[in-house]
Computed example of a mutant assay.
Amino acid sequence: MNLSSYKDPDGGRQRFLLELEFVQCLANPTYIHYVAQNRYFEDEAFIGYLKYLQYWQQPKYISFLMFFCLYFLELLQNPNYRTAMAHPANKELAHRQQFYYWKNYRNNRLKHILPRPLPEPVAPQPPASLPPVPSASPAPSPMQYNNMLPKNEPRNMVSAGIDPRKRKYVLLSSS
Rank of each mutant, 00 (worst) to 15 (best):
R96C: 10
K168L: 03
P154R: 07
S63L: 11
S5D: 14
P154L: 06
H95A: 15
H95C: 10
R165I: 03
D43V: 08
N108I: 08
R155M: 10
F22P: 10
Y55D: 02
F68K: 13
L110P: 04
E21I: 13
K166V: 02
A36K: 11
P9C: 08
G12E: 03
V158I: 14
V23A: 12
F67I: 06
L17I: 07
A45K: 09
V35D: 00
P115Y: 01
P127H: 14
L76E: 03
L53G: 07
L26H: 00
P127M: 12
S137E: 06
R109Q: 09
S159D: 10
Y145N: 09
A86I: 05
A94H: 10
M157C: 13
A84C: 06
Y100V: 03
P115I: 01
Q37R: 15
K60I: 12
N146P: 00
I62V: 14
S137L: 14
I162S: 11
P121H: 13
M66G: 12
Q54P: 08
P121G: 05
P88F: 00
P140H: 09
P126R: 03
E153H: 15
H112R: 14
V122S: 05
N156F: 03
Q24Y: 04
Q77K: 03
L3P: 13
S137F: 08
Q97W: 11
A94Y: 11
F41W: 06
